[in-house]
Design a protein around this nucleic acid. Structure first.
Length: 574
DNA sequence: TTTAGGG
DNA sequence: CCCTAAA
């Protein structure tokens, strides 16, 4: 009799009809909302400090814009792309670049004028589309070096002082794209090529190692081991898909080493082109006055910036005291790899505030030559969907200062383009981390910052990314472990009591609809372990103890639903 | 997409 | 938690 009643009304006297599934379209909508919420929550996770310099425009820029490849790198592109937000997002996700604002030399029309000896066009012409370097810093230096030479030899401008026809406000943009190593530009006001050095062998080794480790990590997941860039994956990545894609592809087909050599032999390559859109952190180098010439102002002004270096978001590593330094280095490398393996978004900060409207023009937003140094900052944000909710303050209005990176905990698996790009970027960063002694940095400021990138307290904070050597491999793959709290268990038990053990989707909807990180599979798994836990002796249990009362209910419900599964199903059908 | 189970 | 065959 009792049994009969239960059959009809369910465990505990409840009768819960199956949750009707929403139409596909509706479900999609829901999902979308979820994503949105998450985006809110995860908004400013990692922050990368940056400063940037803004300047007026340059007639040469207009020229540049006709170069498709170049166009990619200009901030102007960002404006364009903002119209296509989705695309923008995507591209942000998958690529990095380091660029820098370079004050244009007060030379006559440097970019466009032959007088300077080197023009952007020149640069571009010399540069095969598939140029790439392994280290942005070096590239930058190199560029400057070259330019410097050119200036010295040819640009004497007939003895004339570099008078400017133009606005000293002109700044030439150098975008160092680490993934593609593209950057374009011209020259600097101060043409001192500081510390250019050819890449060291160490660098090479590191590259190899990195690549290897990358493969090692990826291989288990992918049937063919290395499967970085497939055409399909590449396509959606950039604003200007066609162009970028081509570009990217050509790079891809270029062996690493070869590319590097190519770089060395063709210094001009390092200037220019960037297939990948913006990303990264920024640091300012110097500033120039704003544009003075109204005529130029009237035209399509460009904002030029130089992103000098990236700052890796805060993270933690855990490593035995007995580990070797080399091991430590490797560990750090792995961690950095993990970070950059995830998809990243770029945030823009202006005057300490986050710029949220992607559709505004730079001018409207205030990102223009009127800005002062430090006014603009970029942030790197890890893929929001991958970040544990617990890490994300609900208040997304809170904008952490650009220089205060927040902890990252979760990184999505490396993918296609990102993969390659990432490696490049990692090179730059790792270099700073492990070899900050080497004077390879063009700017001292960033060198300083980057040195403080790694903190090593072995905190066992679940909200902190803790990388121990043994788990490095998993970091990029596995979701972070999040033990169920007692209250969660209670909710789960309650839901299962009413819904049974075969309707995990309903359980999810009913009791964990808000917990985005708990999938119905998770709930099912948890129930499984709960049943197991309930059956073993308390001494054998681990983790946060679950109240015996709950465990009892687990067993009871489990027994009930497993006993009556068949009958219940029959019941439901009838 | 969900369910169900093994890993 | 992950992975996946099945449904």
């Amino acid at each position: 009799m009792v049994l009969q009643k239960r059959l009809e009304y369910g465990f505990n006297g409840y009768q819960v009809p199956p949750t009707p599934r929403a139409p596909r379209s509706a479900r999609k909508r829901v999902k979308k909302n979820e994503d949105h919420n998450q985006m809110c929550a995860f908004d400013l996770l990692a922050t990368i400090a940056g400063k940037l310099l803004l300047e007026g425009n340059n007639s040469a820029d207009n020229k540049l814009n006709q170069e498709e490849t170049v166009k990619e790198t200009t901030v102007k592109t960002e404006e364009d792309s903002s119209k296509a937000n989705a695309c923008d997002q995507e591209s942000c996700n998958k690529s990095f670049f380091v660029s820098e604002i370079i004050p244009k030399a007060p030379v006559t029309d440097t970019c466009s004028g032959p007088a300077s000896g080197i023009t952007v066009s020149d640069c571009l012409d010399k540069v095969p589309s598939a140029s790439r370097s392994l280290n942005g810093e070096n590239v930058g230096c190199k560029i400057e070096d070259i330019i410097d030479k050119q200036m010295t030899n040819e640009a004497p401008n007939n003895g004339k002082p570099p008078v400017v026809n133009n606005l000293d406000s002109n700044v030439n943009l150098v975008v160092r794209d680490d993934d593609e190593n593209s950057s374009w530009c011209t020259q600097r006001q101060t043409l001192n090529n500081k510390t250019f050095r050819p890449p060291s062998r160490i660098g090479d080794r590191r590259i190899r190692r990195l690549s290897a480790s990358k493969q090692w990590k990826v291989a288990p997941k992918l049937n063919n081991g290395v499967h970085f860039n497939t055409d399909a994956e590449l396509k959606p990545v950039y604003h200007n898909k066609k162009t970028c894609y081509k570009h990217q592809r050509s790079l891809r087909d270029y062996p690493f080493k070869k590319r590097r050599l190519y770089q060395l032999e063709n210094p001009s390559d390092s200037d220019n082109r960037s297939g990948s859109p913006r990303k990264g952190s920024i640091e300012v180098e110097s500033s120039l006055g704003a544009a003075q010439d109204p005529a130029f102002q009237a035209q399509d002004s460009h904002v030029k910036l130089k992103i000098k270096s990236f700052r890796v978001p805060e993270f933690f590593i855990e490593i035995p005291e007995t580990a070797t330094v080399s091991s430590l280095k490797r560990t750090v490398m792995e961690a950095v790899t993990a970070i950059f393996s995830g998809e990243l978004h770029v945030g823009v900060m202006l005057q300490g505030k986050r710029v949220r409207d992607d559709n505004k023009t730079l001018l409207q937003t205030g990102i223009c030559h009127d800005n002062k140094l430090d006014a603009l900052g970029f942030t790197l944000e890890p893929n929001r969907l991958q970040v544990p909710q617990s890490l994300c303050p609900e208040d997304r209005a809170v904008v952490p200062p650009p220089a205060t990176p927040k902890p990252l905990t979760r990184y999505s698996p490396p993918q296609s383009v990102a993969n390659q790009v990432v490696i490049q970027q990692e090179m730059t960063n790792s270099r700073k981390i492990t070899e900050s002694d080497d004077d390879i940095s063009v700017d001292n400021t960033s060198a300083c910052d980057s040195r403080a990138l790694v903190t090593v307290p072995a905190i066992n904070n679940p909200e902190t990314l803790v990388l121990s050597k043994s788990k490095q491999a998993e970091v990029a793959q596995r979701r972070i472990r999040r033990p169920f709290s007692v209250s969660e268990v209670e909710a789960l038990v309650e839901a299962v009591e009413k819904l049974g053990t075969g309707r995990w989707r309903d359980v999810k909807l009913r009791a964990f609809d808000d917990a985005k990180h708990r999938t119905y599979v998770d709930l099912k798994d948890k129930w499984k372990t709960l049943v197991h836990t309930a059956r073993i002796s308390p001494q054998q249990r681990r983790g946060e103890p679950v109240p015996q009362e709950l465990l009892d209910r687990v067993l009871e419900a489990h027994a009930y639903w497993s006993n009556n599964q068949l009958k219940t199903q029959t019941c439901r059908l009838l």
